[in-house]
């Protein structure tokens, strides 16, 4: 079993109005030392090894569905777990 933690965020060139709204709200809460907030998506995928390498399949999942590569980038961490 593998636990794959996938993080999807906007590319640097893309506006992130939701992140800006959170940034502004944090400032209103008094955290004026917050300089930047990026709002993204986090996925936890549990999977088992098939014929192909897990990383290859995760790359495909991200490219095809989990991220829109026009405007988002992704990174992931794969950890091996004991079988459930």
């Amino acid at each position: 079993m593998y636990l794959v933690k996938i993080y999807v965020t906007y590319k640097q060139s893309i506006l992130d109005p939701k992140g800006e709204a959170v940034h502004d709200a944090l400032h209103r809460l008094g955290y004026t030392n917050v300089d930047e907030v990026e709002l993204g998506k986090y996925f936890e995928v549990k999977m088992h090894a098939d014929k192909r390498p897990v990383a290859t399949e995760v790359d495909e999942m991200c490219d095809q569905l989990l991220a829109n590569v026009n405007m988002e980038t992704y990174r992931y961490e794969i950890t091996e777990m004991e079988a459930l």
Partner: peptide, 17 residues
């Protein structure tokens, strides 16, 4: 259509959110 790759580009959140 953009997600399907039938048109280029993508639609993101409005600037004003």
């Amino acid at each position: 259509l953009t997600e399907a790759g039938l048109l280029p580009g993508a639609l993101q959140a409005n600037r004003s959110s």
